[in-house]
Amino acid sequence: MEPINIHKFAPELHRKYLSFILNGKMPSSQSTMDTNRSILMYFAVSGLDILGEIENIPKERIKSIIDWIYSLQVVNNEDLVSGFQGSTTLNTLENKNQGSNYKWSHIANTYACLSTLLILGDDLGRVNRQAILDSLKTLQLPDGSFKGAKEGVENDMRFVYCAACICHILDDWSAVKVEAMVEFILNSISYDGGIGQGPDLESHSGSTFCAIATLALSNNLDRLTKAQFVALRRWLLYRFDGGFNGRPNKPIDTCYSFWTGGSLNILDAYEFIHNKNNPQFVLMTQDRHGGFSKWGHVVPDPMHTYLGLAGLSLMGFGGLNEMNCELNITKRTSEHLKNIQ
């Protein structure tokens, strides 16, 4: 039976939407995203990569974006806060290229900036690897998890994943106590087979993705027992109900087409729910002016747009570039990473 194509895919509109996020000026209502501009940039650039549009960005613009990213790099061996910031909010002409009060990197932004540099074809030549690793070391807690920054930020599975990506991209795991990290993940497996943000917490597809991808990146997927693997796979498959949800008895939402779909992909289990009609839910959440939202008929945002495209790519839909799920970048970009390592 042919799929019922009621919601037509509009890649050109999504390109426009993401280009606007990247190059335009977002309205002041987005000021709450000010500290996470590098993450919005990653969503926009990686989304354009999935659409096959990176080569259409003018060379000078690629250069200016790369320069902006490097302007977020902090090298501060004294306070051990090296890495990347999320925005230029604290940057002034006075403290340019030097440490200053609270000018600290954040693990999620270091991850997002390194990924975006790769997508744009940079060779990471200006990344101060040793400084980043020395600082990363101080972010791991005794329970094996990671906090996001030197002080004042929580710790959970999201930041474990960021640490794993940073180590993988820099091709150096020496800053991380891998065994403690794996223990933290195993301790966060819930009675229902899924994985939470930490021990005792409810299973969630977002934290499950972070946990599985970390195990995959650190070659530790085999640390799951057979029973754990079977239960985890079942829990993930039950997240599918035409679209994907992130927890039992929660509504389906565009972003889980990647968090859940990507987890299934890493476990080689995506084929179990493959169906020609699967893209329909995600397509229904397209905005008519471009971008995707979590459900239909709500305002689109960069995160759901990116993850919607990534989810569609996993479904083999629309001639989109294929994903490397562990790293949450395209295979095109992970190939580039291999070439510069």
Binding site: S28, L40, I65, D67
Partner: peptide
Amino acid sequence: VKQDDIDEPVVAIDYTKKF
């Protein structure tokens, strides 16, 4: 003290005067 962003901003936000 002004924020030091580059001339060709990336993911820029149209901050209000108050902000």
